[in-house]
Design a protein around this nucleic acid. Sequence first.
DNA 1: TATCTTTGTAACCGAATGGTAACATCATAA
DNA 2: TTATGATGTTACCATTCGGTTACAAAGATA
Lengths: 200, 200
Amino acid sequence: MSIKNKKETKQKLLDAVGKILIEDGFQNLGINAVAKKAGISKVLIYRYFNDFDGLLSSFAEQKDYWLNEGSAFTDFLDHAKENDMRSAAPKLFQNMFNDLIRNRELQEIKRWELFENNPVIENIGKMREEIGIKQMKKVAEILKSDEKEIQETTAVIIAGLYYLALRSKTTEMFNGINLRTKEGQERITRAIETILNKLF
Amino acid sequence: MSIKNKKETKQKLLDAVGKILIEDGFQNLGINAVAKKAGISKVLIYRYFNDFDGLLSSFAEQKDYWLNEGSAFTDFLDHAKENDMRSAAPKLFQNMFNDLIRNRELQEIKRWELFENNPVIENIGKMREEIGIKQMKKVAEILKSDEKEIQETTAVIIAGLYYLALRSKTTEMFNGINLRTKEGQERITRAIETILNKLF
DNA sequence: TATCTTTGTAACCGAATGGTAACATCATAA
DNA sequence: TTATGATGTTACCATTCGGTTACAAAGATA
């Protein structure tokens, strides 16, 4: 609106970060790119966020993916009764996969985690790791499954869903499955159900 | 050895590519870096390989990962009898995981596949994709499993192993499992066995 | 109105990138 | 021995990167 407005300018810069992640990928996320995309001098990034990492921290704080991603899981666990747990568990992982496929911003952050040790990204990873462990413990507790390797097996499956979602950006086919079509994605979600049903 | 030797020089440049992948990661793989690592003028890269992509193509041709990675699988399939197939199948995936964890060069190429569409990397991906499909068909054929979703379920598992191997570079813990210790890696390989046994 | 702080931009810096041109050196065939 | 093509290096180019300095414009305050 106004010509000189700190709050608005900061928001424009933060929005530019998200735009670049979606439109250009995290590898093109830099101070110059953000300033250009926001149409604002990069000097203000240093002035308002001190640092490029400061900008990223504010971005992460605003978006707090790791918490949101956990919330759906937590809600589910709170409302799940023991008897409907087994039938609902596959849905949980299916939702996780669908979210990952659709949310390109989150996808880029996961891709980022996978190849750089940026302190900001690292912190997000640690927080999400803690939440993940708590969730798994709760799942194991509720399921009362005789399966001792819940943590390990779910790790493999979750990792698989991450990889498939990320891979869909750079390739169509993986192991004969088209990762970019609804049909291919449904083959994956059906497989999730099959695996979980046989496992627990 | 000799002061002026084209063949030797070309080899030094190709070796430098592998060194950079292992020591610095694919994101630092560039013409200047290769020349510097090889201790050879970058002009010779253009002269001998025409292009940076030409250098990468020669590197890929020399290493032909996608074929090697398939070979262990193919050998296994050729020697497997129907009755020992079920018990041997987990070993196959476990070996795949162990190789990925150890072979940092291959790891970098998989990481590369995951975030860029370099034509050279893309070609490698396509060749490996074709081999993968053939292998999966063979597995399904031999297993004669009533499980209709072999392709889909193995896709999830293989993808999971890829992700865990790649993630181990940037983080220690994933879902409460230490990806960098032998103990953590063994928890994964045991989980592979559990999953496959229950699936097929 | 005059002064001082905040918000903003333009212009520059050094380092690193991919790429090229000019030149030096060696091996060998005439 | 001399000329020629292959092998190799140095020096440069334009561009882009993160980062800084200097300065202008707007708002607030006295």
